[in-house]
Amino acid sequence: MSEHHDCTDCKRIFEKLSEYIDQELDQEECLVFEEHIRNCRPCLEFLETLHSTIKLSKQLDTQETYRIPRDVSLKLHEFLKKECKLL
């Protein structure tokens, strides 16, 4: 860990990384953020690895495991037909 990285600016940037990636910073904050990143390689690399983690996470949603199996769907509809009639 470099000395440079204990600086207040880096810590402030560190807290804003997710909001920057999610495009939730206002224009002024965004400019300050980008100005810092341009001149700070460690922060830029941290940003890149965090961004890659997020991109990878989005792929969890396309995994087959999370599709509803036909038997689960059939059971659900039978269950609801029976239960809702009783109400």
């Binding site: 860990m1 810590k11 560190f14 460690p42 922060c43 690399e45």
Partner: peptide, 10 residues
């Protein structure tokens, strides 16, 4: 771990 490990390749 704050800014540690920042040098890892993306």
């Amino acid at each position: 771990e704050s800014m540690k490990r920042q040098a890892l390749a993306s």
